[in-house]
Amino acid sequence: MESVSRVFSNRFVVLGIRIVLGIVFISAAIGLRFEVETLKFVFEFEKSKIAHPGGFAEAIYNYRMLPYWAINLMAIVMPWLELICGILLIVGVFWRGSALMIGVMLAVFIVALSSALYRGLDISCGCFTIDDGGHTIALDLLIRDILMFAGAAIVVTRRKGEIVLAGRN
C-alpha cells in the first residue's frame, strides 16, 4: 500500500496524470475522439460541444435529470470549463483548482451515467462530441470516468513540488 502511495506521490507520475486528464478534457471540448473500432482519432469540430451548444443541450436533455432552466446554462458553460481546465492542468497554472473542477465534472458525469444506465436509457453520452459517432452509453464509459475521477483526486490532494510551466507552484 505504501509503495502504491509512493508511486502516486512521484511528481512525474502526477504530471503524467495531469497531461492525460488535460488532453482528454481538451479533446472532449473541441470534438476530438478516439474511435475504438478503427483505432483512429476522429476530429469533428463541427460536432463539438463548444461549436454546438444547441446539440449539447439536447444530449443533456436526453439524460432527463436536470431542470429545464439548467440545461442550456450547462451546455453553454461546461465545454469551456472543460477546455480551460484541461489547458491549465497541463500548463500548471491554477492546476489544483482545475483538477478540482475536473473532479466535480467527473462526479456529475458518473452520477448521470449511472442513473441513465440504471434506467436503461439508450442515449448518446455527449462525452466527446454531441453524438459520439452514434455510440450510446455503456458501462465502459462509467469505468473510464471513475478512473479519471481517481486521477483528479490524486492531483487535487497533492500539496507541493509539482512541475509547472508557468506561475507559482
Binding site: L81, I84, C85, L88, F94, R96, G97, S98, L100, M101, V104, V156
Partner: peptide, 8 residues
C-alpha cells in the same frame, strides 16, 4: 484551491 476553482 477553492479560489482557483471559482476563478476558472
Amino acid at each position: 484551491t477553492a479560489r482557483e476553482a471559482l476563478i476558472v
